[in-house]
Simulated assay, not measured.
Amino acid sequence: MQYISNFTPLLNNVKLSNYVRFFALATVLFLASCAGKQEQAQVAQAPSLPVITISQGSQETFVDYPAAIEGAADLEIRPQVSGTIDRIYVNEGQLVNKGQLLFQISPLPFKAQLNNAKAALQAAQAAVLNAQLEIDKLTPLVQNKVVSAFQLQTAKTAHQIAVANVEQAKASVNNAQINLAYTEIKAPISGYIGRLPKKQGSLVGPADPEALTNLSDVHEVHVYFSLAETDFINFNAKYEGNSVNERLKHLPPVSLVLADQTLYPANGKIDMVDGQFDKTTGAITLRASFPNAKGVLRSGNTGKVRLGMAHNNVLLVPQASTIEIQDKVFVYAVGKDNKVSKRPIKVLGTSGTNYLIQDGLKSGEQIIAKGFESLKEGDLIQPEISKPVTAYNATK
């Protein structure tokens, strides 16, 4: 209509025939119609897209570290003496108590050794009596100068040798008793029996490369995991304390993710930090202890230690509302004039399906939630306000 008003004075001033005037007016109307359609097309080209508002808050994220699980005590059960296994009193996987009999090695050779040692002791004790009798006989003779003092001194020396032989014989008896006791192999701790590679009748000895079995005390398990140097520096800076032991007291409980990605029902506590970094891997080992009253965990299990980390004054952006280009993450921010600008953001970490944003956005700004694939810098959109993305305390 603006085109018609511009051309009307011109048509009135120019002296034209009615036919020419009608043709010119029709042309003006046609041009005005086309211009109106073009303006409507420009408005129609602005797509309607969902927009979310970013807000600031506190957030707790979790980082998982691969871990190896060991029992509170993992022992190899080995024989202390050589011999043949007479009997095995336990089964593989059995729970045993401290002091319970596990294996019996044939005791007959060791009983014979004990008897020989006892006999040698008795002979040594008899030799002491005989030496004492010799001293008693020579003493008055020396006093009466019937025999020389040298003979008495020789008798006393023989007595001392006999006494020493008695002590040596007693040690042999004790050693034989110890070896005989070693034929009964008992559990040094309470725990679960491992595999039993040796069977009844097998010849075993202390030098065997393979143990009789393994015994694991798993009423509590130790879970070992490693932190890289950078993570360990952040770890030390985050918690209060002048030493590692003081910082350990301020650590929150940690979780254990099992091999099937389920969470172990009980939380653990980090109670040890290794004294030095591994030169090969550049990492340092930490240990978390978990209760295991039901025996669900066994030595040799694997899993992941999940550490919680609190973040204050962070922004959350859905990962689906971002685009990654050459290792950089971008969002499409919406300005006050509803024009779009592609903006790089710095990601601090992830929480579920959201990114934690360290830099690149401010609280209260709006970004396009989805449908931005074909947009260009400076494009105009019609925003559809969606539910704001707010920070929250993530659950485990």
Rank of each mutant, 00 (worst) to 15 (best):
L297N: 03
L307Y: 04
A310W: 05
R298T: 03
A288N: 03
V314W: 06
S299C: 02
A310G: 05
S289L: 04
G295R: 05
T285A: 14
D327Y: 09
G300S: 02
T302M: 02
V273G: 03
A283L: 11
T302E: 04
N267R: 15
G282K: 12
G295I: 05
V273A: 04
N312C: 07
T280I: 12
G282N: 09
H311Q: 13
R306I: 08
G295V: 05
L286G: 00
F277C: 09
N292R: 05
V317A: 04
V305G: 04
T285S: 15
V273E: 00
L286W: 07
R287Y: 03
H311T: 09
G282E: 06
A293D: 13
K304F: 03
G303H: 03
N292T: 07
V305D: 01
H311G: 06
N312H: 13
K304T: 00
T302F: 01
D278I: 11
G275L: 14
R287P: 00
F290K: 04
T302C: 03
K279P: 14
L307N: 01
G295H: 05
P291F: 12
K269H: 05
V273W: 02
V296L: 13
G303L: 04
P318Y: 13
T285C: 06
K279V: 14
E324Q: 11
T302N: 03
K328V: 06
L297H: 02
V273Y: 01
G308R: 13
S299D: 02
M309N: 13
K304I: 01
S299W: 00
Q276N: 15
A310H: 09
P318M: 12
D271L: 10
V273L: 01
I270C: 05
V296F: 08
G303F: 03
L297C: 08
G308F: 08
